[in-house]
Design a protein around this nucleic acid. Structure first.
Lengths: 203, 203
DNA sequence: AGCCAATGTAGACACTGACAGCATTGTTGT
DNA sequence: ACAACAATGCTGTCAGTGTCTACATTGGCT
């Protein structure tokens, strides 16, 4: 399959795969379209047929990142385990992804900022939150969490986990291994959610 | 002071100030050393005397960002108010900074990743955490929080606030205004810390 | 068989960050 | 006062980059 034909066959996939590795290893700043073309064995203008921009390539990379992350999260959440365990598993999966692919995670969340992000990117980046809302709602229905706004609870939980993830990739966990920091955070958040009910937060 | 002399006077400060505005408005990718030199009215090689690299400039920008942020946090934490209020004020200050200067915040946390980050940058980025630990320790001593590892509690709190901040800049707050999300998160985290004590988190 | 859209190539352009050598300035020691 | 001298700024140059345009090759469809 290494024969050099005029048409590559599936350049798009090859570019994405190589770009993933480069970004994952050296960060998105180190990604060069021309070098990428050389790596894949194609001329420097070829990528334009599949990705208008460099930003478009990064967007596609971000989409792939979200898809993989969403997959891990979905896998962690499904099952018959107690809600607290599934909750914990989801957090672990999130932080684990962040620690393994920090540069990709960064690319995922910076790609959205470039004004005209593809609708696909926006959609795939919003998948996790409703899933978390559903999990919390189910826990509330089962009586493991007190009734209340599941949306608010989901934002709190998501923020905490996302925070640990980014802190872990930035060496700001004060020396704690990320597994420990994640466990402690999730436990604390779960406790905070479980003990809600007395009063609304004062504005 | 607008007279064109050979020596600029304090080019370093002028470059930093202009760079702050550019990054703040259009992101660090839109920063060009040559355009920066044009803006300040100086030749394209001049910046090298003050910042060896483009990365060195971004590092200096990150340092300035951390200094301003640390200033806001210190201001929020000091005073005679109850600990819960100071806790809340610090969180508000953090998220507020993030929302007002998202691109700067991003630059601050990405600058650290470039292997040879200056010791100054590393130090200034680690200021907030000990301050938070001190606040929590004081709250514990005053009996407003149960005894326990203040370091762990600080990591949890910092992660949650940092998470809301980054989520806010990425439009992932599920529609909630950031003030609301911040308030809810801090309340929940505080409740989680306050209700700790029954059992260690299972590993 | 022959057309045509899809895909890849080649060349050019403006721009960038970095470097080297030179010009100008302010300061410091005598 | 004045000669070194370091600090600071200028100009020219280089390789590399992203994007655009015109052209070449291919494979699928009628």
């Amino acid at each position: 399959m290494t024969e050099r034909t005029y048409h590559h066959g599936n350049l798009r996939a090859a570019l994405l795969e190589r770009a993933w590795d480069v970004v994952d290893a050296k960060g998105s700043d180190a990604l060069s379209l021309r070098q990428l073309a050389r790596d894949v064995g194609v001329s420097h203008g070829a990528s334009a047929r599949h990705f208008r921009d460099k930003q478009a390539l990064l967007d596609a990379l971000a989409v792939e990142g979200f898809e993989r992350l969403n997959g891990s999260l979905a896998e962690a959440v499904t099952g018959e385990h107690p809600f607290a365990d599934r909750f914990r598993a989801a957090g672990d999966a999130y932080v684990s992804f962040a620690v393994r692919h920090p540069a990709i995670l960064r690319t995922m969340y910076t790609a959205k900022h470039h004004a005209a992000a593809s609708t696909e990117l926006v959609e795939v980046s919003h998948v996790a939150m409703p899933a978390l809302v559903a999990l919390i709602t189910a826990a509330q229905d089962a009586g493991e969490l007190p009734a209340g706004s599941a949306e608010e609870a989901a934002v709190v939980a998501f923020a905490a986990v996302h925070g640990v993830a980014t802190l872990a990739t930035d060496d700001l966990l004060n020396g704690f291994p990320w597994q420990h920091a994640t466990a402690v955070t999730i436990t604390s958040v779960w406790r905070g959610l479980a003990s809600a009910g007395s009063s609304q937060p004062a504005p």
